[in-house]
Every structure is written in C-alpha cells, then in structure tokens.
Design a protein around this nucleic acid. Structure first.
Lengths: 233, 233
DNA sequence: AATGCTTTTATGTATGCACATAATAATCTG
DNA sequence: CAGATTATTATGTGCATACATAAAAGCATT
C-alpha cells in the first residue's frame, strides 16, 4: 500500500496511469486532489501537478479548477498524424524520390477555391500540378493554388525541380492552417497521372494555410490507391 | 526591440511561435538558450522552459541537452485527430443517432486478421458487424473482431442496443493501439449497407488495440461517401 | 587517427513558496 | 425562495534555487 517512493513526475505519471488502466480508478470517477497525492507519493505538489497535467494532455484525465480531477469517462483516442514533406516520407521508406511538374499556370481558380481562400472571384492565382514518385511509380498527385499576393517570390519560381510542397515550407510564413482527410474516386485525369483505374478509391488530403487573414495556399494531395496513413494511439 | 514584458509562459510561447512562423528564426536555425531568453523576456528560466517544452511537444522545436534548441528544419505538421465514440460524433453535429446490429457470430477469422491479432489461426473469435446512422441515414459501417479470451464479458453481450464501439471502451482496458486511415472502393456488400453505389470511394479507419501482449479487438470503420475528417494545424 | 577520459554546458526536473483564477459552495438579502 | 454576494477550494502558474543528466567539446594517450 505504502508507495516505496515516487521521486520523479514520470513515476507518478506511470503509477496514476496504472491505476486508471486497471480500473482501480474507474472511468468518470474523481481522484484524490494534488495535495493528497503529493503526500501519498512523498513528493511536492508541483511534481504531482506535472504528472497529472501530462495525463490530461494525453486525454486520460479531465481536470477543472475547484471541481478537481476525474478519470475521463469516454477515453477519446487522440491520433497524432505527422504530415511530413512528401520527399522525406518516401525517402524514409528507402525508396527513390522523384518529382515531375505537370502544369504551372496563372489563372482564375474555380469559384469553390476562391471562396475557400477568401479572395475576389476574378483574382488570378498560381496553379501548380505535380507528381511525386517513389521508385519511379506515381505516389501522390499535388494540385495547388498559390496566392501570389501573399507569396511574392512564387511568381518567379518555375517549380520545375523543387516541389511547391517544399518550396513553400521554406519561403512562406503562415499562422494557421486547416487540414481535411477524405476519400474520392479517381477521375479520368487523375487515373491517367497516377496510373490507376478510373474510379479507384484515392486517399485525399486537403490543406489550406493562412497568414493572418490572407490565404497562402490551398492544396489537394491525391495518393495512389492503397495508400495508408498510420499512427499509434 | 525590448519586449514590453512577457509575464506568463503562454505569451512567451506565442512570441517564440511568432518568430518561427515569420521566419525571424529560420528552419534549422539555433535559437538563444533558455537563460538568454529568460533575460530578454524578463522572466524566470522555468517559464521559458515551460514555453519551449510546449513548442517542442507541438513539433516546432527540436531540443537536445547541451546541444541546445533549434527550429525544426522541415516543419512536420502534426495533425491531432480526436477519434471519439461515433455516437458522440453524430450527436455533436446535432443529428439523431441510431444504431443497428447487422451480424454477430463466433467464428474463425480470415488469416489476415488472426495474423494481425497474433492469435493461432484456428481461434474462434467474436465478429460483430453494425451500422451507425445519423438522422436515419447510414453514417458508418463497423466490422469488428473481438478476442474473447481477453474480453470475457463480450461473449454474453448481444451488441443489439449498445454498439461494440462503446461497450468495449467501458469494459476492455487497453494499453496500446494502432490506427490507420485509407481509402477503398465499396464492395457489393458495403454498398448495400451504406446505401451507396458499388465502387464508391469510402474513407476507412482501421484500429487494432492491445492489452499488453494480447490483442483486444480489430475494427474497420467504413464511412459513407463524402465523409471528411478535419482538424486545424 | 582512433580511443578513452574529463570538462563544460544546455536542458531537464524537484522543491517550497506565493499568488492567480475559475468554479463551486455557503451565505446573505430583498 | 430566487438572486446576488462572498467565501472557499482545487487547479494553474511564476519564481529562485539546487541538482541531475545528456551530449558535445576538449584533452590526453596510444
């Protein structure tokens, strides 16, 4: 019963997590307050606080001032996806990365795009379409609109060698972003470029980034059939 | 130049993040050490530490003892997805949730499943298939294998009213989990249950959870066409 | 040049203390 | 008794200090 000694916040963290997982502290139940735990564990309240905060961040505990700390009733799994530069993603799998620009134009985007990016409907924007290949096999198709007002250097960049994906990361500051994952059927176009059957199910990532109030870029990545994004809980 | 005053760790956090995003501190570049920043911001080193640790957790900074702190070279966007109980997901959108069990059998799973769950090939497992509906429209199709050895009560549960999704969260402890997102074409089966065209692109979530060395459950969720998962960066 | 030892240094963390803040509980008031 | 006011309380945070630890850098030795 008497704890041998919980010196550091990690061991407090582990012990509390053990009690949650073994249902010693049941879902929805209140746990002792920081001061009490500090006494039990023989450490400072600060240390307990550190451990409990970490568990709250991870989604195990629900903490509220004055109300106290309780075990989360319905553990909400928080999956953290790392969305890396595509070149790195491919190289880390030990495959050869190559890049191929398909088109690059300055044109008026479809209404859906200008609306999402909150620019006037007639504004001409930079449109870049490119293929990312792994071992010379199409891996992902990138279709991107760039707001040239916000990213000045972009107009002079051909995106022939360096992908817009990487170029923007290095040159375009941003403050916020949204990201959405979905599935869609390959159109004739996409099927041709990704060398797959028309109608094949493609994994899609849509990203929209902002610099303050101004939209920087909107991109859709379509991955070749079979693509998976994985992570641990 | 001289900071007006950064009293709390949040404001230090925000200021540092601003410097990263505006490229004042460029990707890959070292930033001043904690002690220096503490002087500049007029606060204790502890406070700077708190702020930088938080930014490192979020993937903006790379910190190493003695080596110091640097801005991550290729900002890896970390999208944190909250995977809630499906009922909550639907109810939060203000829609009516309903549930319909399709099948429930005790049978030998396909080889791929028993291999992934690391159980002997002949082991019989509980298989539950069910529909989650939003406003009486099919929302997601859940196909789940449950290891009855690890989840004793499951054998006696019909999963007629309560979804396995929720029942397991309350009754089956777990220590680890994997999750994968992908896209797949609807088969005849799935098209029928989700009331969509055969071949439609479906968003798929595969989850596999472990309690120590033993697999608890393996589930595939297929969402009706058009489903999106979104988050902010 | 390669190896092993020592020093230096930036981050990591524990602690006691003080005070801030949010939210509940208790109390007062019309 | 409803509604406003005040007290209480658990978490949230800041700070000074001390020491721990990882890892780079320097140094010496082979």
């Amino acid at each position: 019963m008497n704890s041998p000694a919980f010196r550091d916040w990690q061991s407090v963290h582990d012990e509390v997590l053990r009690r949650i997982r073994t249902r010693m502290w049941q879902p929805g139940q209140m746990i002792p307050n920081e001061a009490e735990l500090a006494v039990e564990f023989g450490c400072a309240r600060t240390t307990v606080n550190r451990a409990l905060r970490s568990l709250a961040d991870a989604g195990w505990l629900d903490r509220r001032r004055k109300a106290g700390t309780r075990v989360v009733a319905q553990p909400i799994a928080k999956a953290t996806l790392s969305i890396a530069v595509i070149r790195h993603e491919i190289e880390e799998r030990g495959q050869k990365y190559s890049y191929q620009r398909v088109t690059r134009t300055l044109s008026v985007p479809p209404l859906g795009v200008s609306a999402a990016m909150r620019v006037p409907a007639e504004t001409r924007m930079l449109y870049v379409r490119a293929l990312h290949l792994a071992d010379d096999t199409p891996y992902a198709l990138e279709s991107r609109w760039i707001n040239p007002q916000v990213v000045p250097g972009a107009q002079d960049e051909p995106f022939q060698k360096v992908s817009a994906n990487e170029w923007l990361l290095r040159h375009a500051p941003y403050t916020d972003g949204e990201i959405a994952f979905s599935a869609m059927n390959a159109g004739a176009d996409e099927a041709h470029l990704l060398v797959c059957a028309e109608g094949a199910a493609l994994f899609a990532i849509d990203r929209l980034t902002w610099d303050g109030d101004a939209s920087v870029t909107k991109v859709r990545l379509l991955f070749a059939p079979g693509h998976q994004m994985r992570t641990v809980l």
